[in-house]
């Protein structure tokens, strides 16, 4: 059993040993530069632990707190042959380097007619639940999923994290690799050997004919618990799907499930406007309308900033109970059956 944090660190060690072109850029990825304790920090969440000592300051590059410059530098380095891994700590900080994400990283290959490859990975954390306040808790994946040219990956357990990060680092396109800050210490069975999970392949955590539940990151973990309880207590069998990569997004897997179940619940932590849940709902409504027995349901956070107070943050986040109730309500809803 290994945690997400452990496997991220292991993959970085293995990949950097395999390929000399990989460099790490970010704040405090070494820590303590110019002091006797140089390298003693290993990133805000320990992902980069031991890399500085092993690969040196030419490959594990501590940058000043200036995201626009080091994300832009990573783009320039990727265009010229390096394979940067960028640490962005909290994905809320994407707002201070959004030009580098949206106008540079995502577009330079296309604008130059395919002359350049941009093999880089940005590792960052999303999500609420740690009482971190409105500027360190957001789920800002929708603004990057909306950009052609980027690939966007989420990993909700250590198995996925290992295979997806290894694939991301070996990919020749820019990949935004997102983890949920409440899941870093969660442990799972992880094979010892090296493996890569292909992008665009959703994972089925449970299989069943009654209802389709699509959930991402921390919501997937809550949905796993909710679906287990629904099965045990009510005999409700759900297809539980984690898309894992949000771009490319495996709508096909979701559609195949909906063809059987006719009922779809999507759970995601981003805001209820222009989110990934709305994107999935839109795709299913456009392409699978005749299969639906009930209106699609979306369970997301309310249209508010993430509140700080524990009392309010707990109210803000969808719960296992709400997922259960949404599934039950969806099963009871026959309003679309007249269409069949």
């Amino acid at each position: 059993m290994k945690s997400i944090r452990e496997v991220i660190n292991e993959v970085l060690h293995a990949e950097m040993a395999r390929d000399e072109a990989i460099v790490v850029l970010g704040e405090d990825v070494a820590g303590g530069m110019t002091t006797e304790g140089a390298g003693g920090f290993g990133g805000a969440f320990g992902f980069y632990s031991g890399l500085y000592e092993r690969f040196g300051s030419e490959r594990v590059i501590d940058c000043p707190i200036s995201e626009a410059s080091f994300v832009g530098a990573a783009v320039g380095a990727a265009m010229t042959g390096l394979r940067p891994v960028i640490d962005l700590q909290f994905f809320d900080f994407m707002t201070v380097c959004y030009d580098q994400l949206a106008n540079q990283m995502a577009k330079l290959r296309y604008m130059t007619g395919g002359q350049f490859k941009l093999p880089l990975v940005m590792i960052s954390l999303v999500g609420a639940g740690l009482r971190a306040g409105a500027q360190h808790s957001q789920s800002l994946h929708p603004p990057v999923v909306a950009l052609p040219g980027l690939k966007v990956v989420t990993a909700a357990d250590a198995y996925d994290a290992k295979g997806l990060l290894s694939a991301a680092i070996r990919d020749d396109d820019p990949v935004i690799f997102l983890l949920h800050k409440t899941l870093l210490e969660e442990k799972a069975e992880v094979p010892e050997e090296d493996y890569q999970i292909p992008f665009g392949e959703a994972r089925f955590l449970a299989e069943g004919d009654d209802v389709t539940v699509v959930a991402t990151l921390a919501m997937r973990r809550k949905a796993e618990a909710a679906c287990a309880r629904l099965a045990a207590e009510a005999g409700i069998a759900a297809d539980l799907i984690d898309p894992r990569t949000l771009s490319p997004l495996d709508v096909e897997a979701i559609a195949e499930s909906v063809e059987v179940t006719g009922r779809l619940l999507i759970v995601d932590e981003s805001t209820p406007c222009c989110g990934i849940a709305q994107e999935i709902a839109s795709a299913v409504a456009q392409h699978c309308f005749e299969w639906l027995r009930a209106p699609i349901r979306v369970l997301s956070t309310p249209f508010t900033p993430v509140p700080f107070s524990p009392a309010l943050e707990d109210l803000y986040l969808p719960t296992e109970r709400q997922i259960e109730n949404s599934v039950r309500a969806l099963l009871a809803d026959e309003s679309a059956s007249v269409l069949r």
Partner: peptide, 13 residues
């Protein structure tokens, strides 16, 4: 020329 490998965006049914 959007991606060097594979595609992004939605993979539709």
């Amino acid at each position: 020329d959007i991606y060097a490998t594979d595609v992004g965006g939605p993979i539709l049914p």
